[in-house]
Amino acid sequence: MSEILLNVDDLSIVYKTSAGEVRAVNNVSFAIEKGKTLGLVGETGAGKTTTALGILRLLPVRTAEYRSGTIEFEGQNLLALSDKEMYGIRGRKISMVFQDPMTALNPIMTVNDQIAEAIRFHSDGTLKREEVDKRVNDILELVGIPASRKKEYPHQFSGGMKQRIVIAIALVCEPALLIADEPTSALDVTMQAQVLAMIMELKKKINTSMLMISHDLGVIARTCDDVAVMYAGEIIEMAPTDMIFTGNRHHPYTVGLMNSLPGVSGNAKRLRPIEGMMPDPTDLPAGCKFAPRCPFCEERCKTELPPCTEQNGHLVRCHRFA
């Protein structure tokens, strides 16, 4: 067992809205080991991004509230740090790549300035201009953008290149943890593969750990060591990647996810989507959150929260395996 870099324990986050309290993340626990990649899968609204932003403490201050839990990073609880201490963590220790590269960059700042800014925030002001320049050039080269274009503005780059720039910003300080929030879902398919391969290569090069958020099981299968499946703000299954994709001991939701994937080989079959919708996060079911859509739903599923059971590092939150 190698060293644990990030340990999220019992994290709950709610949004206070006029329609009531939105329970976006509910008692989520997971850990990421040094150098490893954890995948966070789930459909839109499952709480993946809230979890990610919650780790960086970038949630809207006025509406979001941490209800419970700790986020331990390199031995210190991020939730206990001051704002100023958080500035030193963000971008330096933990970076984030956002979903939509079209809007993630400041439209009126040159690419060079946006990357250099990230370097300067984390140097004590003694860094020489030439050094900053050199680091900007180096990281641009690493993400495959000619350094000669660094004086250009975001609108002069294509979507794929913008995402490369966003990745350059995230990695320029060589963070210990990279949070990639659907880094490829806004790109077209050919770009997706390229950008993904690049992220994985850079991750290896600077030996960073990663939290990969995606709704795309293909992306997850290719990149992650472990996978956590999220549903309605809860982690309902977590296991090493190969165990998620094989075996029979699965949460019905995970099975549903797999069934709604089109297969490459074999006969073309109709996809089997999961019937129904995710529950309203302002009014979650008392028992298992998936119960209303579950084909194996029993009486106790509707009233009792199923426990998490483990078998060889494979966690499932379902009454069937309890």
Binding site: Y87, F98, L105, I169
Partner: peptide
């Protein structure tokens, strides 16, 4: 509320830098 301000914060920008350098100019 734009995404780029979040990117700025994720880089480690203090709040005031995000507001005066990034958001205000836009």
């Amino acid at each position: 509320r734009q995404d780029y301000t979040r990117t700025a914060l994720a880089k480690g920008a203090p709040n005031r830098v995000m507001i005066w350098r990034h958001a205000l100019k836009n």
